[in-house]
Design a protein around this nucleic acid. Sequence first.
DNA 1: CCTATACATTAGTATTCACTAATATATTAG
DNA 2: CTAATATATTAGTGAATACTAATGTATAGG
Lengths: 109, 109
Amino acid sequence: MIQAAPIDTVMRTLADPTRRAVFERIVRSDEITVVELTRGSGVTQSAVSQHLRSLKQAGLIVDRAQGRNVFYSAEPKGLAPLFDWMSHYAVFWRDRFAGLETLLKEIDP
Amino acid sequence: MIQAAPIDTVMRTLADPTRRAVFERIVRSDEITVVELTRGSGVTQSAVSQHLRSLKQAGLIVDRAQGRNVFYSAEPKGLAPLFDWMSHYAVFWRDRFAGLETLLKEIDP
DNA sequence: CCTATACATTAGTATTCACTAATATATTAG
DNA sequence: CTAATATATTAGTGAATACTAATGTATAGG
């Protein structure tokens, strides 16, 4: 069961550029291993693993072990606290949300 | 002219709980002074001023000096990088965005 | 004027944190 | 069985940072 992380955890976890880059790569790929993530990350495998642990604890990703590989994938519910936080202040950014709404109509007409 | 802060700056600025709390209070109030913000913040006026400087540099707030008071208010464009970042991944969180869309319709029918 | 008030800034400090290097654990290949 | 591969974990280190205390600057009020 994935525990819903508070907005504080999610914000803090995504604040680091390296860790956010790792997360973005996981999101873009369906499933991805640590070796692949490490490649081109600019940091060591150790650092990547530590970021993965943070992301997992924040509920942003899930992992699936298979043999000596561990496949990571994005957890859709993970960004919920961020969505909620922003929607809580939606009324103050009506214009911005309006633009986003247009985008949504294009995606899901 | 308000310089558009990169997502990195916005994320980092909002990651700190104290600073985010300050920001949230500014958003909820139309205009608010440093004294009012300091009251009940749990930190010194110095700390609040430093957070305000960060928030201002991140383009999240604007200030208006009047006499010995400085009134702070939220800058609507400030959260744009965050919106953009999230909308970039909108396709992966269609359901969440759908819920948000519903909320938008209620706000702006 | 002189004092109080509002806010910003500086210096110093303690804590957090992102990273590397080294090591541990488990799995696959030969 | 042994070596190589994949990943996690630990310890240690340097840098970033959030905070307080002290001070500076400007304005308002008596």
